[in-house]
Amino acid sequence: MPQGPASVRRGPESCRGLDSLGFIEREGSHARVGPVFRPVVTAARDRLLEAFGARLDSAYLYGSIPRGTARVGRSDLDLVAVLREEPADADRATARALGRTLDEEFPEIDGVGTLLFSRARVLSELERYDIGWFVACQCTPLLGEDLAEFLPRYRPDSLLARETNGDLARLLPRWRDRIAAAEGTEEALRPLVRFMSRHLVRTGFTLVMPRWNGWTSDLREMAEAFAGYYPDRGEQLCRAAESGYEPVGDGAVLRSYVDDLGPWLADEYARVHGVKTSRPPGWD
């Protein structure tokens, strides 16, 4: 059963990640990018501009590199490219090729992921509390106009929780298909373990975020915050946090996610915050 706030250890770190008015502060900055990663970031900026040219509206960094917590040779480079038009399959192929080139050229990183959105989608009312929040609060500007200037300030409330991670029930069948399609090798399963572990930890955290009243992107801190309210599930989420950082390609872990932890979390999320607003067909 969920526990009240009295069971959660809170101290000087209470309300962390918020400004003096209670809004979520933007994570990351170029000042936090470690010297070893700066050539990678510069190359990524130049390659994005070369790849998309005048169609590129803006670009961003997110993840551990702009937060200053990246590990050399272990962390990936996370990018967002916002186009003036809706991305097409050719754009996604271009982004994948760009990522492969950067990954091969720079041993300092372990993989590159590039999210593609249109400017209209980022600024749409439908995505205001999902992609819009993500760009405004979790992304560091790299190129072009900063779209955060056109978006509201965000609080760690139930609306934000619902619209960011209130779709887990819809995702679980896709996850089962991905697991079934993956080769049963450690190398093939490890990326799935990392991805699904991180997603579940973030979902668990945003479930309790309004009560915790703060923001963090540290997976371990997310899991600990969750465990303060759901001690019966806390150990599971803490293990998932470790797998998010140090994944092992174990099929049993993935099955536990889609058969146990994931369905429970989806049901509890819907009970507490409701279900994420539906998107048009093909929107995602």
Rank of each mutant, 00 (worst) to 15 (best):
K276W: 13
D177Q: 06
W212S: 00
G262L: 00
P281T: 08
S20F: 02
V82D: 04
A90N: 06
V193K: 01
L147M: 10
P210S: 13
G282Q: 00
E242L: 04
R47I: 05
R38T: 10
L219Q: 05
L151P: 09
E149R: 15
A136I: 10
D110S: 07
R119C: 02
S124W: 08
E50T: 10
S75E: 01
R155N: 08
R174E: 07
E127F: 06
N165P: 00
R74C: 01
S118G: 13
P141D: 01
P87H: 13
V33Q: 07
D78H: 10
G17M: 03
D78T: 08
G184F: 00
W215I: 04
D46W: 12
D218Y: 02
L102R: 08
A51M: 02
A44Q: 06
L219M: 10
A81E: 02
R100M: 01
F195I: 03
V122S: 10
A225L: 00
E105R: 13
S217P: 00
L142D: 08
T101V: 07
V253Y: 13
P141Q: 13
L142T: 06
L172H: 08
S217N: 09
P12W: 11
S20Q: 12
W264T: 04
L159F: 09
A120L: 02
V272Q: 11
A70W: 14
L219N: 07
R174W: 11
F37M: 01
E221L: 07
E246V: 05
C137G: 05
D177F: 05
R74W: 14
W175E: 00
C15V: 05
G28L: 01
G228M: 02
P263E: 03
A43F: 03
C137M: 12
F117D: 01
D259M: 01
R155V: 08
L159G: 09
R211I: 05
P5F: 10
L49M: 11
W133H: 14
R16Q: 07
E86S: 12
A93E: 14
H30G: 03
S124A: 14
D250Q: 06
L207K: 11
E13S: 12
P156S: 07
A59G: 14
L147E: 09
S217W: 09
